[in-house]
Design a protein around this nucleic acid. Structure first.
Lengths: 189, 189
DNA sequence: GAGGTGTGTATAACGCTGTTGTGTACGGTC
DNA sequence: GACCGTACACAACAGCGTTATACACACCTC
């Protein structure tokens, strides 16, 4: 049986994903779990802490999605599958993705828990990159290479979610971008 | 002499840049220009329209920054300078950058004016890419290539602003990413 | 079992927000 | 001089996050 805190976080993540950040209010969250507004303050602390918890929950879902990509013998195929899973998650839960990646550092730094969550998700990518480097597909320090891949992939889906991508065939453009990455990160000929 | 509408937009952009989105309120904006709250509604229409106008103003500033990068005889150097100007703008005005690129398409589509603004800024990059393709530095359709570059560059600075970049030398990592891009987008050997 | 203690809850209130309505002053037009 | 439309300040409304208050209930000690 989930605690009321867990119910609140789950409800907040769901309402955020379905109706956007404007719908996530303390009164609404209380009503969602059949309690009063005070539930947020008794069980979570504040709306800010609730949104922080949703951030963490978002990364947990993201982690599960990426971890579900089963390792392949072909590192190129595995990286491609990871890239597709990444974009699929962002398009499936745009508000959650926005809550996870859209914060500005100038506002508030990440909590240690958030940083650890983000790092553990990043490690999925880094390990796959390390295998690709071992196989000779990519070259360089896996950490640096994975950072570049993450930035690139995030940039594309972020522009896409913001409606700033002019391309009318985003899936094809995304594949082209992944191809560019592998070319640019490959060993020198 | 600027109109009160222009004063409001300028004040909103400034307060947004200096104090973040939470400080941009109707009462504050009225006080900023020495008028009452009603000024926002008389001269702009609503807070939402004001933020839309700030979005447009942000792209105008962005455009000026990128357009100030003077064309070089060396397309590689020009692209590199554009990339540095891009990151410099984002780091100088993170809240403005966030307001420009952080909206989720699911919330509200861009107005035609916003789309045109964004496109005209994109054209600066596309033209530079076209020159690089002519010079044999890059290969492919300039529009597609420029889209890939934009996505990549945006992804990096976006992660950086969100505090999710683990690298402790972001400037070096950014240069490495730009290098990867040029390699990946260059003509086949 | 009786009485104190502490936690969870609901209700109400405070100050803030965006927005709207009301009344008033001002400047141009017939 | 009378009229009209615009801009303005002030007040009010609903909703927000948050806090204070009062009540209910489980538990623990005597």
């Amino acid at each position: 049986m989930p605690t009321k805190r867990e119910l609140l976080i789950e409800a907040a993540a769901r309402v955020l994903a379905e109706e956007g950040p404007g719908a996530v209010t303390a009164r609404r969250m209380g009503a969602e779990i059949g309690a009063s507004t005070m539930a947020v303050y008794t069980h979570v602390g504040s709306m800010d802490e609730l949104l922080t918890a949703v951030h963490t929950e978002g990364f947990a879902r993201f982690h599960r999605r990426l971890a579900a990509v089963r390792p392949s013998d072909d590192p190129a195929e595995e990286l491609h599958a990871l890239g597709l899973a990444y974009r699929r998650f962002a398009r499936a839960e745009p508000h959650l993705y926005q809550a996870m990646f859209g914060r500005t550092l100038a506002d508030a730094a990440l909590t240690p828990e958030q940083a650890e969550q983000a790092l553990s998700t990043f490690l999925i990518l880094r390990d796959a990159v390390a295998r690709a480097v071992d196989a000779g597909l990519l070259a360089g320090d896996p950490q640096d290479v994975a950072t570049q891949i993450w930035a690139t992939v995030h940039g594309f889906v972020s522009l896409e979610l913001a409606g700033l991508l002019v391309d009318d065939r985003p899936a094809r453009a995304y594949d082209a971008l992944l191809g560019t990455l592998v070319r640019g990160l490959g060993p020198p000929p």
